[in-house]
Design a protein around this nucleic acid. Structure first.
Lengths: 114, 114
DNA sequence: CCTCATACTTACAGAAAGGTCAGTATGTGT
DNA sequence: ACACATACTGACCTTTCTGTAAGTATGAGG
């Protein structure tokens, strides 16, 4: 990712929540803060390495807050910031659209696309 | 892309419009059908190869319609389907969110992220 | 014939994203 | 002394994405 200007609001939004994981992470955090391990179990298929990477980036962009509890074994909680909550709200209609058209989307022959 | 099931509507929506280009292409087509060359000029920074790839995928997922006019030099117009228009509507709030927070998003130190 | 415009298509290479797996640090409990 | 749980961290590799540059096909116009 390089310093950049954006062609429109959608372009900027996609830069912030782009990739296939960040949307799901936001979604999981919308109701409550979660620990690292809880998030890993909540987002099926993500690897530890990638999850941490995504969390770090989202922390850097101001979408979420990382709270470390000085305990052993360690406990780290991730929660949405105000910024993150506002993005989540903006993603609402997109999620609903996906729900509405879920069957159609699953029927797309993904395996033979590019 | 493989055949897959989705964990939620947002997951499915991201699979359909994911990547950094499809959202912009939808955006450009929201008011009128465009020819290939017009689209290339409208989406700054995209290469021909990637634009065609994205258009083919979006055609395959049913987001847009490809109309070939048998002329020389060739003329091909791309326009949104009803499905594409509905996705565009769902993306509206996300685009507005990006507009609202554009400054903040541009100020993010993208160059030092991962 | 030669050039032009348009919409691709192909070959290749480099960059970025994603995955696997092993290892680290540290108080607590046994 | 030792295993345990948690949250990472690093090395390494594979897959996917993106870009560059060149070439193809076609009929019109000169």
């Amino acid at each position: 990712m390089k310093k950049r200007t954006f062609t429109c609001g959608l372009d900027a939004a996609i830069a912030v929540m782009g990739g296939k994981w960040k949307g799901l992470i936001l979604f999981e955090l919308q109701t409550e803060a979660l620990r690292f391990g809880e998030l890993r179990r909540a987002v099926p298929g993500i690897s530890e390495r990638v999850l941490i990477q995504q969390l770090r980036e989202m922390e850097a962009t101001g979408l979420l807050h990382r709270e470390v509890y000085r305990q052993v074994p360690p406990k780290v909680e991730y929660s949405l910031t105000e910024f993150g909550r506002s993005l989540n709200t903006a993603l609402g209609p997109l999620g609903e659209w996906g729900e509405e058209h879920l069957e159609r989307i699953e029927d797309i022959p993904w395996e033979q696309l590019p």
